[in-house]
């Protein structure tokens, strides 16, 4: 089996002793999509920054297409494309100028860079906006031009750091289709995401990252099987009723229920059948739910199943997250000495 990307016991500490990575290991098969799934501050972006030679390690090693990222950084940089969470393209340049610039900085001859830019604009349906500055682009268009920039050299390895975070569902679906067509073309993709749905849709293998460690690894199906196919979420009037409901619902699933406040959540395999049974059980006890929902499992559910903590709580442990905001990058991903909110 050939691996396009290998990470071995990667470790990283930031100033102030914050441990960002604590021995992260995984291997990505050539031509596959590998997902790093985890909440904000788990260390996903740090992994990507190390693999793309932006950041050095404090331990462990990593290779891209067999080349060590710390020993041959110049060579490694010519092998991959990187598209990021915050589309890092120049908003004063037009879409075309951005692509040509990236081509030139990849040392393509001018003519080739221009031809490649035109191709990509076509492919990403940005021809109409090609000669407008990026300031006029929507969030989804920026991500697309950012992704196009990562593909200028037709790299066989692609790093996508939270490619759809903050996008509306339509733009997200559009970007997913693009990524899927890339994989069809044989590109190896390492993807970081906070969305289980995204990892499920795109990745053939997933590593769940928490506090700088891989806490679970497998196919998305294996992950979901460990979790239950769906989650039954019931909202009650008060905490006491919720406690009774929790006890009553527990026997319906092999997985254990989780209660927070007036809400009870139960990972289930049976879907609608279990839902009917649940309603009967609650009815017999005279409990009338306020809300009653069957939903797809989320990253939060994976976290509950794997760690007994919610993803939000996980991000808060060991690292500092601005209170009340899960959108702000947590300390390990932030540039030391620069404010987390200001990065990128």
């Amino acid at each position: 089996m050939t691996y396009a990307i290998e990470a071995h016991e990667l470790a990283k500490r930031f100033k102030g002793g914050v441990v960002a990575l604590d021995g992260v290991s995984f291997a990505v098969e050539e031509g596959s999509v590998f997902g790093l799934l985890g909440p904000n501050g788990a260390g996903k972006t740090t992994v990507v920054r190390i693999l793309t030679t932006i950041l050095g390690t404090d331990g462990g090693s990593a290779t891209v297409l067999g080349h060590d990222v710390s020993r041959e950084p110049d060579l490694v940089r010519s092998l991959f494309g990187l598209a990021g969470q915050y589309a890092a393209v120049d908003e004063n340049l037009t879409g075309r100028e951005n692509l040509v610039m990236v081509g030139r900085l990849n040392h393509l001859p001018r003519k080739v860079a221009e031809r490649r830019a035109a191709e990509l604009l076509e492919e990403f349906e940005l021809v109409g906006a090609a000669d407008r500055t990026l300031k006029t682009y929507s969030g989804g268009m920026r991500r697309r031009i950012d992704l196009a920039a990562a593909l200028v050299t037709r790299p066989s390895v692609l790093f996508l750091d939270e490619p759809t975070t903050g996008l509306d569902p339509q733009s997200r679906a559009g970007l997913w289709a693009v990524i899927e067509s890339l994989v069809g073309a044989g590109t190896t993709v390492l993807l970081t995401t906070q969305y289980l749905e995204e990892a499920d849709r795109l990745a053939s293998r997933v590593a769940v990252v928490d506090n700088g460690r891989v806490i679970s690894q497998g196919t998305p199906d294996e992950l979901k099987a460990a979790l239950g196919a769906t989650v039954l979420a019931v909202g009650l009037h008060d905490a006491a009723t919720a406690e009774r409901a929790e006890r009553a619902l527990a026997p319906l699933s092999e997985k254990s229920p989780h209660r927070s406040g007036t809400a009870v959540e139960l990972p289930v395999d049976g879907g609608p059948r279990i839902a009917m049974e649940a309603l009967r059980v609650l009815d017999q006890l005279g409990i009338e739910p306020v809300t009653f929902v069957l939903r797809e499992p989320s990253l939060d559910d994976v976290f509950l199943a794997l760690t007994g903590r919610s993803a939000e709580g996980a991000a808060g442990e060991g690292v500092s997250v601005a209170p009340g905001s899960s959108e702000v990058g947590a300390a390990p991903q932030a540039r030391p000495g620069r404010s987390a909110g200001a990065r990128r």
């Binding site: 030679t53 932006i54 110049d74 940089r77 890092a88 120049d90 900085l105 990849n106 990065r343």
Partner: peptide, 12 residues
């Protein structure tokens, strides 16, 4: 601040 330099660092 905008991350453009970080992107440049990942280019050859």
């Amino acid at each position: 601040q905008k991350g453009i330099i970080e992107r440049f660092r990942a280019l050859p």
